[in-house]
């Protein structure tokens, strides 16, 4: 494929992962984020999937050291939860300091979160019947995350991508119009030819 085109497309994709909603730097005490939801969107699992598809890649890019896992179940009526695991505060030594709220375990076979380390502080967000943006803002608030500020270079790049998109949309529309006119003319010609053929056949 054309290198310039390939590069342009890749750049847009990478920019989309670096900046946008969800691009935030989580503080160091966040150790793990786990999402539990069903495979299909019925019964309020839509937001959870959107969070995974749209925001989690950005979070992962900016926080590669934080483990982010997902468990999708076949249980459509089951809960949709987001679990955040915090590192135990260094000054408290007792492992039974705060009883962790039991994460809603599902019928799946994969290991439920926080079964091995009880000393961690665990917080859950209920994602059921919630919009993706709502879940994200709750998560950022809970973890005290700082939003990522795009650099001037990145902003310039983004403007370039937007310009490209606008230009391509405009060209697309123009081409569509042109194609439509061409098609209409062709149809008219075909109609005329078809009539001519009928006449010659009858001669």
């Amino acid at each position: 494929m054309n290198v310039a085109q390939r590069t342009k497309k890749l750049k847009a994709k990478l920019l989309d992962i670096r900046i946008g909603p969800g691009a935030a730097i989580l503080p160091g005490d966040v150790k793990k984020i786990h999402l539990d939801f069903a495979r299909k969107i019925n019964d309020g699992h839509f937001g959870a999937r959107k969070v995974w598809r749209n925001y989690l890649p950005r979070l992962k890019y900016h926080n590669p050291a934080i483990s982010m896992t997902i468990n999708r179940t076949d249980d459509q009526e089951g809960p949709a939860t987001l679990t955040v695991h915090f590192a135990p505060p260094s000054n408290t030594t007792s492992p039974t300091a705060s009883p962790a709220p039991a994460p809603a375990s599902s019928t799946s076979l994969s290991t439920p979160p926080s079964s091995h380390n009880a000393s961690r502080r665990v917080e859950t967000i209920d994602m059921k019947h919630k919009q993706d943006s709502e879940i994200l803002s709750k998560l950022l608030e809970l973890t005290n995350a700082t939003p990522y500020e795009p650099s001037p270079d990145e902003l310039a790049e983004m403007r370039e991508v937007d310009d490209d998109k606008m230009r391509s949309d405009r060209d697309k529309k123009a081409q569509m119009r042109l194609n439509q006119i061409r098609r209409q003319e062709q149809a008219l010609l075909d109609q005329a030819r078809g009539a001519g053929k009928l006449e010659s056949a009858s001669l």
Binding site: K11, I17, W52, R58, M68, I70
Partner: peptide, 19 residues
């Protein structure tokens, strides 16, 4: 073309493959 070091490429790939 833009080219990447292995670590940079892996960071992006891990973000794309999250979950």
């Amino acid at each position: 073309a833009i080219q990447f070091s292995l670590c940079d490429a892996m960071r992006y790939i891990r973000a794309f493959e999250v979950g």
